[in-house]
Nucleic acid binder design. Structure first.
Lengths: 152, 152
DNA sequence: CGGTTGACGTTACAACATTACATCGCAGAA
DNA sequence: TTCTGCGATGTAATGTTGTAACGTCAACCG
């Protein structure tokens, strides 16, 4: 298995890394974006846009519409600050923003928690297979549903 | 790339293969199921449950609720007659029912068509990585979004 | 005949996502 | 300073996807 070294951030360090990454991408780090990222980062499990909207609403003492959350989540996904988990219709903060590669998510059907593993050879093989079939600008979606060790 | 040989069915042959597979699984091949499978099989692109509900409604001259379609699609997925494309919230008929293995879907963001490739070594590697992380009863979801050769 | 079971119908609703347009604040041009 | 453009966010409405709860009906079995 290929090893990929990077910094795993958490808490304030993660927020700071996210801010840097977003600014480097030529985007603004606004209060709203900071709040949404902060809330997203508190989740262990993939969080739905509506979950986030609720918590951000509480935090701000004012209703934040799902709409606004989606806008910012989309931005986060395109700038690699967050990932969308397709099989869960939900999002996860990227614990190493700025570090660009394909992720493999393992989602437990029982407890819902997601862990992510990196295996660049594997993802490169997926990319290669898709490109071999004539695909371009490929975005692999590699997720595994199953039962995690704790729920076993 | 690993080669996997199997029969690709189409049309009546496919419907027949599906019927056999379902019956072998101890389930009934009803009119409703036949209609839903037939409609699903006409699609090139992943079909949403609502698309299918509309077409089946037409075909029967009577409204068929999405609800009923979901029930049967779920059955199809568990019996391997159809696949769910997670990143599209939609379904595809399995062109070789009865033949059980993990699929890799390539979905064109531009035209929406899905092609599927088989690469058992690749999917086995994904399974192995998940199991190595302590996961059990794994169901890999491997999809690639991108631009297909025709849309290039 | 009565009971059970599996398939499907019906209604209602929950969860997820997008569209269109309005507003606000700020930076640069006039 | 006033205007103007623009990016970010607000607001409302609506579209899409998915489930829950419960009713009906026909087939089968004792």
């Amino acid at each position: 298995m290929a090893v990929h070294n990077h910094h795993e951030h958490a808490g304030a360090s993660l927020a700071h890394a996210a801010e840097s990454a977003l600014v480097n991408a030529g985007e603004q780090w606004t209060d709203m974006r900071a709040d949404i990222f902060a809330v997203l980062a508190t989740f262990e499990k993939p969080a739905s846009a509506y979950d986030i909207a609720d918590l951000v609403s509480q935090r701000r003492g004012k209703r934040v519409a799902p709409n606004s959350v989606y806008r910012i989540l989309d931005l986060f996904v395109t700038t690699n600050l967050a990932r969308r988990v397709e099989s869960a219709n939900a999002y996860l903060a990227n614990s190493h923003p700025g570090c660009l590669h394909d992720c493999i998510f393992l989602i437990c059907d029982s407890c819902g928690t997601a862990t992510h593993i990196d295996d660049d050879t594997l993802t490169m093989n997926v990319r290669a297979a898709a490109e071999h079939a004539g695909f371009a600008e490929v975005r692999p979606v590699i997720e595994v549903r199953g039962k995690c060790a704790d729920c076993g």
